[in-house]
Simulated assay, not measured.
Amino acid sequence: MSEQYPDGQPIVGLPSAPVPEQFAPNLASLAAQYAATQPFTPQPQPLPPAGPAETAEPGRPAGSPPAGSPLAGAAPRHQPRSLDPVRQALLNVRTEVAKAVVGQDATVTGMLIALLARGHVLLEGVPGVAKTLLVRTLSTALSLDAKRIQFTPDLMPGDVTGSLIYDAHSSNFSFREGPVFTNILLADEINRTPPKTQAALLEAMEEHQVSVDGVSRKLPAPFMVAATQNPVEYEGTYPLPEAQLDRFLLKLTMPLPGRDDEIEVVRRHSLGFDPQDLAAAGVRSVAGAAELERARNAVNKVGISPEVLAYIVDLVRATRAAPSFQLGVSPRGATALLNTSRAWAWLSDRSFVTPDDVKALTLPALRHRVGLRPEAQMDGVSVDDVLAHILATVPVPR
């Protein structure tokens, strides 16, 4: 029997299918009610069609969310207004990324929201789920420069930020830019490098600049760090400290594809798909830095009522009182939840934020900002379990 609000309205987002694999196998019953929002399930409005180039899958009406999309099953409450060109350009990015990456629509949407909210993303997934390919394809669709750093135990901070190089001809030192001077930096396996090198990204992520030899140098705009890490391998890794985790706007999990999606991946490779040749796959640029900046300005104008603001604060404060958490969410987490909710509302063609927007962004915006107590870990409780319980118990404004 489906859960209902006190006024008799059904709770949006309840799962109609088994809990996704990325959740802990012992998910509590209350957490299961919100498992459909994992890893990223904005509600209540589904995204409008990604663009004219999108075609319907067999058995799916044109314009409806793709199978496996986090938006699947969410019914619109009103007909969306006509999209402006900037919003349509951002939505078309999903169509372009889907030409190279299969079954990761939720992650693509999350990365778009992070770009709109001027934040950074931590991507977690086992090897081989197209984390690197997704970042490369996204940067191509957005006409943004992207660079990749393979983090290793012997990587030095100067290898990331750049360093002073002595020029024998001029007898002077000149600054040579590191790979951080780009629009989208793919920090591959960030937890495989020591804390000293991990900390080299802190100033870049927070201040959008790097300081070498007492001189600060601005990074290109827009700038986003997309860091990846393996969720199951801990041998030879250096877990990210809380200070750096808190600087990531969202933590998105990339699950293994479903059977149909995996068949499509293999089929594309059987036809000669080359991940290194995105042009051959038909990926084209549909937006740029100018459209992204206009979109960011539009997101800043999305309204939010005092009641919804209070709801965000209540959720964050509840994490500090949760007995399973030894570390709750800081005020920075509350602002992250606010900014991402506004970005999702704008993508959904609304000029205001609803409580369902906040619910949808709670897990990806907060899951990396809390810490479980050892006894909770021994009991098999996960961070998402506790956050889902908080969502189920904190009163929702009407």
Rank of each mutant, 00 (worst) to 15 (best):
G288I: 00
T55M: 14
D314G: 03
S69L: 04
E242F: 07
T132H: 11
R87F: 04
K359G: 12
L256P: 02
P85N: 13
M1Y: 07
P66W: 02
L142D: 08
D167K: 12
A36M: 04
P239C: 06
V212D: 10
T253H: 15
T109P: 01
T335C: 04
S330Y: 02
I113A: 15
A392S: 14
P44V: 06
D385A: 11
R268E: 01
L327Y: 06
F175G: 13
A310F: 08
A67D: 11
A36D: 14
V108F: 07
M1I: 03
A298R: 11
S351F: 08
R217P: 04
V232Y: 12
A376T: 13
R81A: 15
M254I: 15
V12M: 07
G51H: 01
H120K: 13
A114H: 08
R398T: 05
G236F: 05
D357W: 05
N300A: 15
Y34G: 04
P61H: 06
A336H: 15
L278G: 05
T182Y: 07
V286W: 00
M254S: 08
T197G: 12
L122K: 03
K131D: 09
E206G: 12
G282I: 01
P20A: 10
E242Q: 14
V353F: 04
A321Q: 12
V126I: 14
A227M: 04
N92W: 10
K131M: 08
R284E: 15
K359T: 04
V370D: 10
D105E: 15
A227V: 01
G214Y: 09
L391T: 04
A336D: 10
Q244M: 06
H368W: 12
H120P: 08
V286M: 02
P323W: 08
A200F: 14
I263D: 02
A281Q: 11
L252G: 03
Y234K: 11
S170G: 08
P127D: 01
R94I: 12
V215R: 15
V126H: 02
P241Q: 12
D277Y: 06
R217F: 00
Y166R: 14
Y311W: 02
V370C: 12
D84K: 04
L47C: 01
F173N: 03
N339E: 07
A289P: 14
P397V: 08
M156A: 12
A287V: 01
G371E: 15
Y234L: 14
E124D: 01
L315A: 12
T319I: 07
A295V: 01
P25V: 05
N183H: 13
A280C: 05
D277S: 05
A287S: 11
T362Q: 09
M111D: 04
A343N: 09
A243F: 05
P153R: 00
V394K: 05
K196Q: 04
L142P: 09
G125L: 00
A295F: 05
P61C: 00
A334M: 04
E264C: 03
K99W: 11
S163D: 13
G380A: 13
L47E: 00
Q22K: 02
P52C: 01
P46G: 00
